[in-house]
Design a protein around this nucleic acid. Structure first.
Length: 580
RNA sequence: GCGCCGGUGGUCUAGUGGUAGGACAUGAGCUUCCCAAGCUCAUAGCCCGGGUUCAAUUCCCGGCCGGCGCACCA
């Protein structure tokens, strides 16, 4: 069995994840997290919150998964995701069907994308359109509709289309004006969101790696590109395993190690904010259980860059020989906010106050409309606007007796004295800045898949093969298994009482009294439970229990009344098992 | 979406034109003083629909699902 198959089998058998709606044949690309998986996910998400919300001092919001069409017109997802594709039966090349129709001589069709598919298919016959690659006639070939967004209707009827969000980021961007208020209009600030996103993938693959509904944890850090710098010194010595474009294109390209500081100084990572988050994140991956020997940061190749990104690095993990993307670190510039400002008409900028107000000489006009109106009639208004723009663009144009402006291709001469031109001293207390966005975007499901795959271990205990998940105690869904050595002589009662006490102390506890003790240890090993506590005959005598550690299978005796404190400390990394 | 291969208890699998056997797991009982021991018993299965046939889990067609390759991954 491959690494992935073994993992999927264990995941189903032990309750990490399973394909959804199995009773009805299953649905491709949808998974249900079982009891272990749901808690594992919760643990990873809360470790993420701890790192990217609490410790970075960012905000968290929680928005809806359905958003109106206008949002995705602005974001570019509507056009970018909705393509008609036709595949040539001869050479196998795929082409945009709508573009071929528009390009066909005499078709006269201008907006084929808006037409129903059946109609576009007919147009292929009508205009005898051939494959641009090999010339084969495409008439009669089916057209595939690639719409990666799930659509729906908001309210009755179809007048108000909506889509399931294909990324959580837009839910942050659209609320920017109010979020800036919450941040008291002070840059920089960061906003996070953990939530579901949906993409109607053509072919979901590899269990949790490519699914149609998934969880993202995204951070949008809004910065003033001219003023804000990341606190690089906090991570400057972190060593990054980098796989740059240059190395990817080299024949024998391998990863190279650079500290965050070196990466910035040498220009390997172009943007210091991106470098900062690469540095912050490396320790976090390690903390949740990613094997850092199977981890790298890979730079996007020029052709891979999304429409908004100027530079992008992915965190990738290796599973079964494949590298999978678990996080994208993108510098999105002002693309998103500028788009939403343009489409919504709302203000998506932040007013940045100068330390000291500055005085500037500003050319202004104050056209005498009572003179321009009679002279130029209906064009007067537009001429006034153009004068205003011209004054800012080229004040020298007002030096002569008259000034010439062009409106709708018509040239007009205006007497300078009628323009009210003057140069005024203006005091400016600040300026409007459209922030740039730095975006680390985490795929939670792929991280879960990675953590499970990297935790999967096999060894031998007393000549018997054993499978266990070497999950960090903080990440493991169950922290402690509690067993009576025997299900008799009152041991079970004492053990159940202990299990209740440990749960009350805030630990995730499983109680098990079924079968031989070794079997129970192995059950917990397979779900990655780091510690097991056994109540035995000595417990009845001297009030101590054994604590057994998963990876080493070693045991220590601990006093009953101290066991909850030790386990909490072990879980939180404040104590090591060896020092018990 | 295309092509190839596949789909039998929770899991892994044997097998068959006359509705199925094992292993592991699970539950009950016995046994057991720390790492999947043993014994007894029990629960539980042929992906869905159509066709051929007296009879289909088995053969044929379609669908769904999975693996791999291609394409796709804004």
């Amino acid at each position: 069995m491959s690494e992935g198959d073994r993992l999927t089998e264990l995941a189903k058998r032990r309750g990490f994840f399973l394909q959804s709606s199995g009773s009805y044949g299953g649905v491709a690309g949808f998974y249900t997290y079982g009891p272990q998986g749901a808690t594992l996910k919760e643990n990873i998400e809360s470790a993420w919150r701890d790192r990217y919300v609490t410790r970075e001092g960012h905000m968290e919001i929680d928005g809806p998964t359905v958003m109106p069409e206008a949002v995705f017109e602005a974001s570019g997802h509507l056009d970018g995701f909705d393509d008609m594709i036709i595949e040539c039966p001869e050479c196998g090349e795929s082409h945009r069907a709508d573009h071929l129709v528009e390009d066909a001589p005499d078709s006269g069709v201008e907006d084929a994308e808006a037409l129903p598919i059946a109609e576009v298919e007919e147009l292929f016959s009508e205009y005898d359109i051939d494959c641009p690659t090999c010339g084969t006639a495409l008439a009669g070939e089916p057209i595939d509709d690639f719409n990666l967004m799930f659509g729906t209707n908001i309210g009755p009827g179809s007048s108000s289309p909506g889509y399931l969000r294909p990324e959580t980021a837009q839910g942050i961007f659209v609320e920017f004006p109010q979020l800036a208020e919450y941040a008291r209009n002070q840059l920089p600030f960061g906003v996070t969101q953990i939530g579901r996103a949906y993409r109607n993938e053509i072919s979901p693959r590899k269990a949790l790696v490519r699914v149609r509904e998934f969880t993202q944890a995204e951070l949008e850090h809004f910065i003033d590109p001219d003023a804000d710098e990341p606190p690089l010194h906090r991570v400057e010595d972190v060593v990054l395993p980098l796989y740059s474009v240059e190395q990817q294109q080299a024949d024998d390209g391998e990863m190279q190690e650079r500290t965050v500081r070196e990466a910035v100084d040498e220009g390997v990572v172009a943007d210091p904010w991106v470098a900062y988050y690469l540095g912050v994140s490396k320790g976090w991956y390690d903390r949740i259980g990613v094997d850092m020997d199977r981890f790298r940061y890979r730079q996007h190749l020029p052709g891979e860059l999304a429409h908004y990104a100027s530079d992008c690095w992915d965190a990738e993990t290796e599973i079964g020989g494949d590298w999978i993307e678990v996080t994208g670190f993108a510098y999105r510039g002002d693309y998103d906010l500028a788009k939403h400002e343009e489409y919504s008409g709302e203000d998506y900028s932040v007013f940045k106050q100068y330390d000291d107000p500055i005085t500037v000489e500003k050319p202004t006009v104050d056209p005498d409309m009572s003179a321009l109106g009679p002279e130029f009639g209906g064009a007067a208004g537009a001429i006034a606007d153009e004068l205003d723009a011209l004054a800012e663009r080229d004040p020298d144009a007002f030096d002569g007796e008259t000034v010439e402006v062009t409106v709708d291709g018509e040239s007009y001469e205006v007497a300078v004295e009628q323009t009210g031109f003057s140069i005024e001293e203006v005091t400016e207390s600040g300026e409007h800045v459209t922030p740039h966005t730095v975006e680390p975007s985490f795929g939670v499901d792929r991280l879960i898949y990675t953590v499970l795959a990297h935790a999967y271990e096999e060894d031998e205990v007393d000549g018997e093969e054993r499978t266990y998940l070497s999950l960090p105690p903080e990440t493991a869904p169950t922290t402690v298994g509690v067993f009576p050595l025997m299900d008799k002589d009152g041991l079970a009662d004492r053990a159940q009482e202990l299990a209740r006490d440990l749960r009350e102390a805030g630990l995730e506890v499983t109680y098990d009294d079924s079968g031989a003790i070794g079997r129970r240890y192995r059950r917990q090993d397979e779900v990655g439970t780091p510690f097991c506590v056994t109540v035995d005959y000595d417990t009845l005598e001297d009030g101590t229990v054994t604590v057994r550690e998963r990876d080493s299978t070693e045991q220590k005796r601990v006093a009953l009344e101290a066991v909850d404190g030790h386990l909490l400390a072990l879980r939180d990394g404040e104590q090591r098992f060896e020092s018990l």
